[in-house]
Amino acid sequence: MARKNYRRRLKAPLTAKKGEVITIKTMAEHTMEPGVRRDPKTGLIYPRFIIDSVIVRYNGKQIFRSRWYSGVSENPYMSFKIKVEESGLLEIEWIDDYKQSTFKRSVINVLDNNGNEIFPIRLSEPSQSENLQ
C-alpha cells in the first residue's frame, strides 16, 4: 500500500533538434490527502500527506521549480515545456510533505541540422586541446 504513493511516470521525447521547445509530461501516483477527510466508520481524520514541491534539472542545472499545496488533485499530472540546446540528462524530483524525495530520469539526444549529436562537453575545441597539451 505504501508502495503505491511512490510510483512516478515521465514522458519525454528521445531526440530533438537544437533550440527546439519540447513538452514533458509527468504524473505521480499519490493519494494527495488534504487533511480534512474523515474515515466514515471511525470518524478519525486522515493527516495531511501531499507532494510539496517538484524540481526539474537539466544537466544538473535547475531550470524549473513548482510549489504545490493541498488544492492539487490526487495522482497529480503536470505537463510543461523546456528548451534544449545540447543533449543531456533530464531529472525530475518530487518531494513529499515528510521530505522524502523520489526521482525519475531520462536522456534526450539533441541533433544538429546535419544529424550530428551536440554533446554538452566538447573536447574538439582548439582552446581546450591546447590547455591539455
Binding site: I22, Y58, V72, M78, F80, K81
Partner: peptide
C-alpha cells in the same frame, strides 16, 4: 493551489495541471 517558478531556459511558459 500552486506556484510555478520559471527561468530563461524553460522555452515557453505553457503549463497544464
Amino acid at each position: 493551489i500552486a506556484k510555478f517558478f520559471f527561468s530563461n531556459q524553460s522555452g515557453s511558459a505553457d503549463l497544464a495541471i
